[in-house]
Amino acid sequence: MNDRNNAPHEPEDTNLTVKVEPEKLIWLDPQRLSFRDPGAGRPISMTIADDRTYRSIFALRAFPRQEPNGFIQIFQGNTDETRGEMVGMIRGIAQLRQSDAETLAEALRRSYLVPRITAILELEEHRFMARWVVDTDRGVRSFDMYQPHRNVIGSGSGRVLMVDVEENRYEIPDVEDLDDASRRRLDRVL
């Protein structure tokens, strides 16, 4: 107890919570950005001209549904030293050079394992679950879904999101593009 008496300063007046770094919105200048994909599963790197190179980055969309090609937030990848710190935001992919835009698109593909459904091959309904067999841009897949009415989420624009029992996601970019049989199956739950 008497330790307290020889304390250098009593923290009596420390009535505030620990300070945190305030978050900032940093815009990256597309003219100065370049991306590189070494391939073979190596992380994509990003260089800001006249500044520095980030050896490993990943990218996420701020508005994946409303503006998939704009507002891309860049993070530092998981390496020994860095752990997902934010680097900055890119306003639009289109402002990048063609080759860089392609690499960034690849970075985005790595962040979203969301297959696009091109056809619904089967729908089998049970009391509490539905089993779907679908064809996607990543291959054929079958999956189970609880409460189809809740997990097939339509939006006015014809885009449909599906969520399976394991919380994997699937996307139909536009219902109008499906063939008639697929549409009829979808209509049973939508």
Partner: peptide, 30 residues
């Protein structure tokens, strides 16, 4: 170092070898 990097819809297995991190495979949420 061996870690996983989770993304929307799944994730990837990342191994840090002598020449840096490498994505070995990808998997789904389950």
């Amino acid at each position: 170092q061996a870690t996983i990097h989770s993304v929307t819809g799944g994730g990837s297995l990342i191994l840090h070898l002598s020449d840096g991190p490498k994505e070995i495979t990808r998997f789904d949420v389950g």
